[in-house]
Design a protein around this nucleic acid. Structure first.
Lengths: 256, 256
DNA sequence: CGCGATTTGTGCACATCTTCACAAGCGCCT
DNA sequence: AGGCGCTTGTGAAGATGTGCACAAATCGCG
């Protein structure tokens, strides 16, 4: 809305002509479907039913069909979905047809691991540059990339268009880094620092906090322990209903 | 629904006696509140208003009040919440009053980083043991812990109670590791491997997939690019509604 | 002691997400 | 060609989550 700084090639997009206005919950699951589809393709499947794909992705088949229906009708009744076609469609919707460049800021413990993680490259992301604020770390080479000072960010961003920034710094430094990323036109940030970031409108921030995930697990452990410790609470008729443990984006009890 | 807590249990002032049956969305936010509260306590605040805490945690104040109301009434109208009391309450609900032991399986690139991550210890989790299947890695010492073969898991689990297992192995090995963890009684698993795990009922699995987060960001980038590239679509009535960019668990546009 | 300023806790309406159940469509077999 | 079994796509209902707006409660002050 305010700043449209398009990187270079506007061109006409050969892919999806409409803006499908997907539900966020669906968007969050599409990458999982994509991974499952790639695995199926690898295994030689040409088509897959909603049941089969849902199984591979760890979701309900009805949910999967509804999700896919939002992209259009790319299945064949009585047969299933064409694996290759569906892969193309989902990649197109997710914008993975072009390789996106990622800037990683903070090459500490976690940053190191992220820089070496090959799961990024294998899914269409290229780590374009590594930055750190610590002068002692500058010049270090990780996975073929040389760590640069974070002040170099504007220069690097001018050379190649960075579409996503990853923050793997300590929490106190994260806000300043976010500001710098925004300043060079980055509108998508993946934040591993345990803190809240303030960004202007139009910039997306996704947060991954490893300790939070553990604490959520801890809650469920705590609750399960309490349940087993209370054999007969005086209350209601239903005691331990088996299906009641499922969590929101937690897979549970997918029996063999 | 309304569970009233009798304060009249003399001498029985331990941790929460009731099972509050919290909404999952609330549980997922409690750790964030906890982090914000610790920061406030560090800064010397004794009390905080819902507005202030909501701001520090990056959420709506109404949502925060509703979340906290599920734990009981621990605020004072006209004043706010007692920071120290609220910390105790949330930690109690999350089961963080006892230090939980974590077993980490897979000390590759990511596992190394996790083993060295101090954000775990600072929030009540202790990495109790490191495992790997690769014989070449066994014996390596990371952060004061020696990497053991994953087959040692039963022995170690017998010595100290492991409540949570973290899987940081390559995807093909993850299911086998999960099975081994379940076999020794682990009922909470944090999975970093990009695959779906099958576990028996009663075992919680939370998944963190770094590439998926990037792909979700990619979608939003793609969509924003499409929006700016299409000034006037001839078709439907609604074109670009400005408030439609917010994502589910994505913070966006928290203005100054 | 009462009053106003302030803030919590919550009922209610709205939005989003999930799940069920079934009609419509497709291919295969006879 | 026609019927039959299978699978998709979707309307509707239910579940869950969100946000507004306001009554109830508390403190400080005159």
């Amino acid at each position: 809305m305010s700043q449209h700084r398009h990187p270079g090639a506007p061109g006409r997009t050969g892919a999806v002509p409409t803006l499908p206005d997907l539900p966020e919950a669906t968007v969050a699951r599409l990458p999982e479907y994509l991974r499952a589809l790639h695995a199926l393709a690898q295994a030689g499947h040409e088509t897959v039913s909603s049941e089969g794909l849902a199984n591979a992705a760890g979701v309900n088949s009805a949910k999967l069909r509804k999700d896919l229906s939002h992209l259009g009708s790319y299945g064949t009744r009585g047969v299933g979905y064409d694996v290759a076609l569906l892969i193309d469609q989902i990649e197109s919707v997710l914008g993975l047809t072009q390789c996106r460049s990622v800037a990683l800021v903070g090459v500490g413990n976690l940053g190191h691991a992220l820089a070496g993680y090959d799961g990024f490259a294998s899914r269409g992301f290229r780590i374009a540059a590594l930055f750190d604020a610590d002068r002692a770390r500058i010049g270090e080479e990780i996975n073929g990339l040389v760590v640069q000072h974070v002040d170099e960010l504007p220069r690097v961003a001018a050379e190649e268009s960075i579409s996503i920034g990853v923050i793997a710094t300590p929490a106190p430094a994260a806000q300043a880094v976010a500001d710098q990323l925004v300043a060079v036109g980055v509108t998508g940030i993946l934040n591993f620092a345990p803190c809240v970031l303030s960004v202007p409108e139009g910039v997306d921030v996704r947060k991954v906090d490893l300790a939070i995930e553990l604490q959520i697990l801890s809650f469920h452990e705590h609750r399960k322990a309490s349940l087993t410790a209370l054999p007969a609470t005086g209350g209601s008729g239903l005691t331990a209903l088996p299906g009641g443990l499922a969590a929101t984006d937690t897979q549970e009890a997918i029996g063999t």
